[in-house]
Design a protein around this nucleic acid. Structure first.
Lengths: 150, 150
DNA sequence: TGAAACCCTCACATATATGTGAGGGTCAAC
DNA sequence: GTTGACCCTCACATATATGTGAGGGTTTCA
């Protein structure tokens, strides 16, 4: 697909798609006329990038994280230098901190909303945690706690 | 306490503390000589601000979220205009999205690390979720999944 | 009295992710 | 063959969070 389609599918400006490529977060081939040609799978990747950027990670870090997400992981094992491992470990922990911070504050906001408006549409929040050696882990779901929605 | 102490306690440059004040995220009184004087509690607040900034929230939004965190919440009920509620609801949901995105990616990174280095120090991750009408909710904790730490 | 360690304001500089637009090709349809 | 919708590169602009430093007070302590 070309840049216009990817742009629409991911709701991301063409300018940004070119920027992500410049930052080596995505790749493209060029067709004869010089137009960028994108793989289907890139749509997902772009969404991932946007999410991470929105969560405060700089492109420099995202670039290092993205390979961890590829399906046939075996290919990337070779890149696993000690420095890379160290970086990823650090970033993993920073992400966990961010998560905890966001959860704390999100919950505070949610509490406030429920307190102030009776029922701030009690939402189902699902969070997959863990990710050990493969076993599917705990899933938590919070349902409304008594106060019925209008 | 004065700005120097707050700066050290929160590991935040004086420049940034003044900036946060300018953005109305924190307040200070002035002593006779014009020096800023800070309340003890501000140290926590500054940490909170830094966490949220790091998680991608702009000061404009943080300013609206912070009042939700104050203990005697009753005081702030008056500010609860419909627009404010709408903003907070939106931001709560955006935070949840961020959380889910971060969890997904953090777990992917963690998986990668465990796969590549045997045991990437299996960490305990605690996440308080929910936050309903007061009842303490589910707590998930992931322990090492077999592979013992060195 | 002078040096050191604080504090103040103001202004300019930087990095990062983005927007906008100029100047110019390609291609399909009419 | 011209028009409209694409695409390209390049460059400049903007917002936000930060750093840096100048120019200048205050307090403390020798």
């Amino acid at each position: 697909m070309r840049i216009g389609e990817l742009s629409e599918r991911t709701n991301t400006s063409r300018r940004l798609l070119r920027y992500y490529e410049e930052q080596q977060l995505i790749v493209s081939t060029r067709s004869a006329n010089g137009y960028r040609e994108y793989d289907e799978r890139l749509a997902d990747r772009v969404m991932q990038i946007r999410g991470l950027l929105d969560a405060g990670l700089p492109t420099r870090i995202i670039k290092q994280i993205l390979p961890c997400l590829d399906k046939p992981r075996t290919i990337h094992f070779s890149d696993a230098t000690p420095e890379m491992i160290a970086t990823l470990t650090l970033e993993r922990d920073r992400m966990t901190e961010r998560i905890n911070c966001l959860i704390r504050n999100r919950d505070a906001v949610a509490d406030y909303l429920e307190a102030v408006s009776g029922t701030g549409d009690p939402e189902v929040v699902v969070a997959r945690a863990g990710s050990g050696t493969g076993d599917p882990e705990v899933v938590i779901a919070r349902a409304g706690t008594g106060a019925a929605t209008a």
